[in-house]
Structures are given as C-alpha cells and as structure tokens.
C-alpha cells in the first residue's frame, strides 16, 4: 500500500523513487492520498460505465425508447421494466440509456467549443498584454454579465430551441473560465526561462505560443475540462427540462424529468431515476476531476 494507485503519464517517465517522493510531497499524509485516489478511481469507473452505456445504448436497451405501450403506462418498476414506464408506457431504463447519449454528447461538444474559442483569446490576452488584454477582458466581462440561462434563453429565441443551440449556449457560458485559465497560464509561462530561450533563438510568436506555451498549459486546461464536462451535463438536463434543449419525443434526462412533473404523485419513479442518473454521472466526473486536479495541478490541490 505504499505506491500511489493512479500513476499518471506525467510521472511515468520518472524513476520510481522520484515518483514516490513526488507522491508523498503532493499527497499530504498517505492515507489521505490513498482515499482521494480511491474516490477518483471510483469516479473514473462509474464515469466509464456511463460512457459505455451511452455508446452501447441501442445494444443494451431492453426496449425501443420511443415505443409507446399504453397498456403498461405508468407501470411501477418491475422485472420487465426495471425503472418502470412513463405516461406513454415507454421503458424508462431504455430512455435513460439513450438520454445519456445526449448528456455526454453535449458534455464533450460544449467543452470543445469553449476551448476552441477560449484558448486563442486567452493566449492573445496573456501573451500580448496591454490593448489585447484589456479588449479580451471587456469581452470576458460582457459574457459574464449574461447569466448562463439568460444566454441560453436568448440563443434559443434567436436560433430556435434545439440540442445544437443548447450546446452552443453551454459552450459559450464556459468560454470565460477557459480564457481566464489560459491567460493566467500564459502570463506565468511567458516569463519562464525556456520560453525566453525560445524567443532568443528567434522563434516567432506562433512558434512560442503553440510549441512552448500551450503544451505547458495543458494540465491546467485538462483540469478545466474535467470541471466543464459535468457542468455541461447538468446544463443539458436543465435546458432540456425547460424545453430549450432536446425536443420530445427524443429522450433526454432533462426531458424525462420535465414530463415526470405532471405525474409526481402517481408515478414518482419517473422523476427519481433520471435524476439519480444525472447526479451519479455528475458526481463521477467531479470525483475523477478532483483526482486529476490533485495529480496534474499540485497548486490547486490545497483543499
């Protein structure tokens, strides 16, 4: 029980004594490091299961998620319908599996979008400073002045409610955080010796930014991504719940919760299981993210 349970790519190249020392230095007491790793591991396993369930949804679903069966409407959980059925008699388990597809799709795409927009702006602001920095700061503040939901609502009004537009809204809402982190990392790295050396060697701005600064900002950005994915999963459920995301009859955890609201007294399982799925998925990604943060970004691991 003396070695850390989650070796990482960043430390595998080191000799094992160094690794052990690093682990000791980073983890505080060993029991706490171990506990944290276990939590991260559990989170990782559950997250992987959710990803698998989403990928294999058509194969593992016992029923067609869109197939109505009025004879069995609002059926309690049973052996034939593990999570019960909804008001149209559709199998809840199959709908949860398919709903996870929407959740993870939005989770990934929104984070990618936030990075595609936020990273270049953050590099620009951090590297060139002055005018570029204050311009990007104003852009960030303007974006922050629109609370996430107001932004999503505005976009839905302009472009129409759909899963794609919900993804765009969620992605945009995460841009300011990505800008801030990239900017802070760029500011820090700009003054580090190896970057100065690259500049002295005649490296152009592009080379310095993308060959030297960006790869070294990768771990901070990875941590941000692990925070962004669960946030986007909740965002999707929220927007679909309000009718601004996935449109019925397409399955989504948020849509399921929304239709459950009319049958709270008659069929509480309609509300309980999709919600549990969201909580479990979010919790799993958050635990995984916490573990990754401890490993990748020791400066953030003070909690």
């Amino acid at each position: 029980m003396t070695t850390p349970t989650t070796p990482t790519t960043s430390t595998t190249a080191l000799t094992s004594p160094t690794r052990a020392r690093l682990a000791r230095a980073a983890g505080g007491t060993r029991t706490r490091a171990l506990l944290r790793d276990r939590l991260a591991l559990t989170g990782g396993v559950i997250a992987a299961l959710f990803v698998l369930a989403a990928l294999l949804a058509p194969l593992i679903s016992p029923y067609d998620p869109a197939q109505a069966d009025f004879e069995n409407a609002l059926a309690q959980p049973s052996w034939s319908h593990w999570l019960g059925t909804d008001d149209l008699g559709r199998d809840q388990l199959s709908r949860v599996f398919h709903g996870l597809r929407a959740s993870l799709q939005v989770g990934l795409l929104a984070v990618v979008l936030a990075f595609v927009v936020g990273v270049p702006l953050g590099l620009l602001a951090g590297y060139y400073g002055r005018f570029a920095d204050s311009t990007v700061s104003r852009i960030t503040e303007t974006m922050l002045a629109f609370p996430f939901l107001v932004l999503a609502v505005g976009l839905a009004a302009i472009l129409g409610p759909s899963l794609l537009n919900a993804t765009i809204a969620i992605g945009i809402s995460q841009v300011p955080a990505v800008i801030r982190i990239t900017r802070a990392e760029t500011l820090r790295l700009k003054n580090v010796d190896f970057v100065a050396a690259a500049v002295a060697n005649g490296g152009g701005d592009g080379t310095v930014l993308f060959r030297h600064i960006l790869p070294n900002a990768a771990s901070a950005l990875t941590v941000q991504a692990t925070v962004g994915i669960p946030a986007a999963i909740i965002g999707e459920a929220l927007l679909s719940f309000l009718g601004l995301g996935v449109q019925p009859p397409e399955p989504s955890l948020g849509v399921m919760l929304s239709s459950a609201q009319s049958f709270l007294a008659a069929a509480p399982w309609m509300a309980v299981f999709p919600g549990l799925a969201i909580v479990a998925a979010t919790l799993a990604f958050n635990l995984l993210g916490d573990g990754l943060r401890d490993v990748l970004d020791p400066r953030g691991a003070t909690r």
């Binding site: 609201q261 509300a271 969201i278 909580v279 979010t282």
Partner: peptide
C-alpha cells in the same frame, strides 16, 4: 442539480 432537488 437544483431542478431535481426541487422535484424531490
């Protein structure tokens, strides 16, 4: 998520 907490 708070909307689920509300339902519960």
């Amino acid at each position: 998520p708070n909307f689920w907490l509300g339902i519960v």
